[in-house]
Computed example of a mutant assay.
Amino acid sequence: MRFLPRFRRRPALAPITPVTAFSPTGVTAGTRWLRCDTTACAHLTFAHTPEAGGFRCTECGHLKGAEA
């Protein structure tokens, strides 16, 4: 009978390890996730770090005004 080999036992799965807590390494205080206004970032949302004139995009370096 050919259907019997299908009923073999599967190997045991690896144990699930607990997820560690999120650690925001390198995130500056005051960082905001804003929509970037440049086509280089394709108008997607990226982290913007606070700067004197507003917020600077961490991907392309574009400076967004303080009203953001």
Rank of each mutant, 00 (worst) to 15 (best):
L13D: 05
A47R: 04
P50E: 12
H62F: 07
C36F: 12
C36L: 13
H48K: 15
E59A: 11
W33M: 09
A12R: 03
A29N: 11
M1T: 10
F22K: 00
V19W: 01
F22H: 02
T39L: 11
I16E: 00
R10F: 04
A40S: 09
T31D: 11
K64C: 06
L34Q: 04
C60G: 04
A12N: 05
E59T: 07
R32L: 15
L4Y: 06
F7H: 05
M1V: 14
R9G: 02
R9E: 02
C60R: 06
T31Y: 11
T28M: 06
M1K: 13
A14Q: 10
T49V: 15
G26K: 03
G54Y: 09
P24W: 05
T28R: 10
A68P: 06
G54A: 08
E59S: 13
P5Q: 08
M1S: 15
R8Y: 06
E67D: 15
E51I: 15
R32A: 14
A40R: 14
L34I: 11
T45G: 05
A66L: 05
R8S: 05
T20R: 11
F3E: 12
P11Q: 07
L4R: 12
A42D: 01
T28H: 10
A68G: 08
W33Q: 10
A42W: 07
A21M: 00
G65K: 15
L13G: 13
V19M: 05
L44H: 10
A40M: 08
V27F: 06
F46D: 05
I16S: 07
A47N: 01
A12C: 03
P15S: 02
S23V: 00
L34K: 07
H62A: 02
R32E: 14
T45A: 09
M1I: 14
K64H: 11
A29F: 09
V19N: 04
L13S: 14
R32S: 13
T20G: 13
T45P: 03
L44Q: 10
E67F: 14
G26Y: 01
T25N: 10
L63K: 04
D37I: 12
P11H: 05
A66I: 09
K64G: 03
F46V: 11
P18A: 08
G53S: 14
E67H: 15
R32D: 08
C57Y: 07
F55Y: 15
A52L: 00
F3D: 09
T45H: 08
T25V: 14
T28F: 03
